[in-house]
Simulated scan of single mutants.
Amino acid sequence: MRIITTISIFVVAFAANAQTIDANSTNKKKAIKMEFFSPLTGNTTIGYESYIKDWLSWEGKVGIIGLGTDNSDTNPSGVLLKAGPKFKLNPDFVTNDLRGSHLLGGKYIRPEIAFAYYNEDVVSFDGNSETKSRQDYTSVAFLITYGRQYILANIMTLDYHIGLGYGYDSSEEGKYNFGYSNGNNSFPVAISVGFTIGVLLK
């Protein structure tokens, strides 16, 4: 009787573990995303995330500067790049039959490099005359980003994040670089805030 009970317990435990493995294996491991509010800030930014292994994925973003509203009337044009590994923090919950949340879901830390190159109109005044010219800008930042990603029905992603780090841009005065803001040369702090929505892929 004890042998049968032991075998039964082993079978039930194995089945529960197998269900957990199957549940995780059905998770979609890639996603295409969009910075939802980026068009309102003068650019359209698209991202791609791919699962690498437990607790780790990779994410990159490409932004088209100028593809969005032009609030400052400077006609910006250029490109924005962001990339970095995404380290998932402890899952929200762990039970005997469920190993935490979705492979791409949960809280995370993402060290990332951001780069922007663009040009825009600059107005200068000489006495009573006004002169408009195009000015090129180059910007780079290293950010440590904290965020949380939600997975909806293994179909959609919702993600909010905030990053803080160091940055530099050629204006030397500090400005918004269509994906993050830099301080001036005497205070070279960079900051970014974002909200993405995406679609999961197999």
Rank of each mutant, 00 (worst) to 15 (best):
P39W: 00
A83Q: 09
K61P: 00
T20F: 12
D92M: 04
S57P: 10
G42C: 01
A16Y: 01
I65T: 02
S50E: 10
N27M: 00
G78Y: 00
K30L: 01
G68Q: 06
D97L: 03
T69K: 06
F93M: 11
D54K: 15
G60C: 09
S25C: 07
D70H: 04
G100T: 03
K28V: 05
T26R: 15
N71Y: 03
N71F: 01
G63Q: 05
Q19P: 03
S38H: 00
F93W: 13
N75Y: 07
G47Y: 05
L98E: 14
S38R: 09
A23K: 07
T44I: 03
T45K: 13
S77V: 06
N27F: 05
G78S: 05
N17E: 10
M34L: 13
P76I: 01
I64C: 08
F36N: 12
K53G: 08
K86V: 13
N24H: 14
E49K: 11
R99K: 14
L89D: 11
M34R: 04
D22E: 15
M34I: 13
I32N: 07
V94K: 15
S72I: 00
L67K: 06
N27I: 01
K86W: 03
E49Y: 09
Y48I: 01
F37R: 09
V62C: 10
K82S: 13
E49M: 08
R99Y: 13
P39D: 08
R99N: 15
A18I: 00
I46W: 11
P85M: 04
F36P: 12
S77Q: 14
T74L: 08
E49R: 08
D54H: 11
I65E: 01
S57E: 04
G84W: 01
G68P: 05
G100S: 06
K30N: 14
N17T: 08
A18L: 13
Q19M: 01
D73V: 06
N24A: 04
E49F: 06
K33T: 13
P76M: 03
Q19Y: 07
K29M: 07
I65A: 02
G84R: 05
A16K: 08
G63V: 03
F37D: 09
I21N: 03
G63H: 06
D97I: 06
Y48S: 14
F93N: 09
N27S: 06
T74I: 09
K29V: 00
T41H: 00
F37P: 13
D92Y: 03
T45E: 04
E59G: 12
I65D: 04
N71C: 07
G84Y: 01
K86C: 11
